[in-house]
């Protein structure tokens, strides 16, 4: 088999793995958008905040230590003990639920019935607010996140592909575990939405607020629920991304990667977010591989591109948008009288 083809296969596989990360972030958007019509600009910052909180708790840092120290002239930064990963994750989930309660109680409760654009603006404000809180609580240094996920090259895949194709694929164990965890998360979410009473209420609210109110569903409760779920999804995305490249401000920019995924997959479809993420992840990696390669693109055109991952996803999504405005799996708008 020609080398280029093998490289391309490896690149695609790795692209798929990255796509899963995109999909996870997009999923957070979809959950909130479906149930409340709010496009939550702060989803990326939520991932940052969740990852920061997780590291902070794990390392036993004192939240708001800068603030405390500068007010009281003290020098505390750490509690002096470490919290096991699992417990730290549970505590972070609790923090994300508290955040959901906060958002609902102090922001969106007061904006019920407002125009979508106003709700969107509110989430922009929320994003900057949360960024500030994250900074104040945990500081802005880059932190290493390690919750015990396996890292490094996957030997089995390396060996197997070497035996079969004569070239060992480099696939990171971290990406594989991310893929598995993402798959489980999605399965659980779908089962929850499909087969539980609260999940049904969530879908009912997504379909028709007024009717949901009329049967006694509390919108407030459902919205707290979806913000909590979006918070948990953000945590998972933050953990995956943070384990890979450290927890730092740029983590919040993964939200920008989720936008083309949403354009592709539709804002209301969970499967759409997943497939959209995979397509963008793989498309982006393959495109970069082809146009930056001297042997392929360079040989044909005499020049090459680089750093295409910044814009390729948007171009791809725009192309889709022209032909299928509701996205790949956007819910069919049922039209009948």
């Amino acid at each position: 088999m020609p080398d280029q083809l093998l490289f391309a296969m490896e690149v695609s596989l790795n692209g798929l793995m990255t796509g899963i990360m995109y999909a996870l972030v997009a999923l957070g958007f979809v959950l909130i958008y479906k149930a409340s019509g709010i496009f939550n600009y702060s989803q990326g910052v939520m991932a940052l905040f969740a990852a920061m909180t997780l590291v902070g708790i794990q390392e036993g840092r004192v939240p708001f230590s800068h603030l405390i120290n500068s007010i009281f002239g003290t020098h505390i930064t750490e509690f002096g003990f470490e919290v096991p990963a699992l417990l730290a994750i549970l505590l972070t989930v609790a923090v994300m639920i508290a955040f959901a309660l906060f958002v609902q109680k102090f922001v969106f409760r007061h904006l019920v019935g407002q125009e979508p654009i106003i709700l969107f603006m509110a989430t922009i404000g929320l994003a900057y607010f949360l960024e500030g809180v994250s900074d104040l609580m945990w500081g802005s240094e880059i932190r290493q996140l390690d919750v015990g996920l396996p890292q490094g090259i996957n030997g089995a895949i390396d060996n197997a592909t070497f035996e079969a194709l004569g070239y060992g694929f480099f696939i990171d164990n971290l990406d594989i575990s991310a893929a598995i965890i993402a798959a489980i998360l999605v399965a659980v979410l779908i089962a929850f939405a499909q087969y539980t009473k609260q999940g049904r209420a969530m879908r009912a609210v997504a379909d028709d607020h007024q009717a949901a109110l009329s049967v006694g569903i509390s919108l407030n409760y459902v919205w707290i629920l979806v913000w909590s779920l979006a918070g948990i999804v953000a945590l998972v995305a933050g953990v995956m991304w943070g384990s890979k490249s450290g927890v730092q401000f740029s983590l919040s920019l993964i939200a920008l990667k989720a936008l083309p995924v949403l354009m592709l997959g539709g804002f209301t479809s969970i499967p759409g977010a997943i497939i959209g993420g995979l397509i963008i992840g793989m498309g982006e990696a393959l495109f970069e591989f082809v146009v930056s390669s001297n042997d392929l693109f360079g040989a044909w055109f005499g020049f090459t591109f680089s750093a295409t991952e910044n814009w390729f996803a948007y171009v791809l999504a725009l192309a889709f948008l022209v032909f299928r405005p509701q996205g790949l799996f956007g819910e069919r708008i049922i039209e009948r009288v």
Partner: peptide, 26 residues
């Protein structure tokens, strides 16, 4: 006391049975 709204307002993407079950939410 429950209202059946003008224009029916069924949950379109839920099945008929799921619609009925939402009525028992409380």
């Amino acid at each position: 006391v429950i209202q059946v709204m003008e224009g029916r307002h069924c949950f379109e993407h839920l099945t008929v049975e799921e619609n009925l079950l939402t009525g028992s939410y409380t």
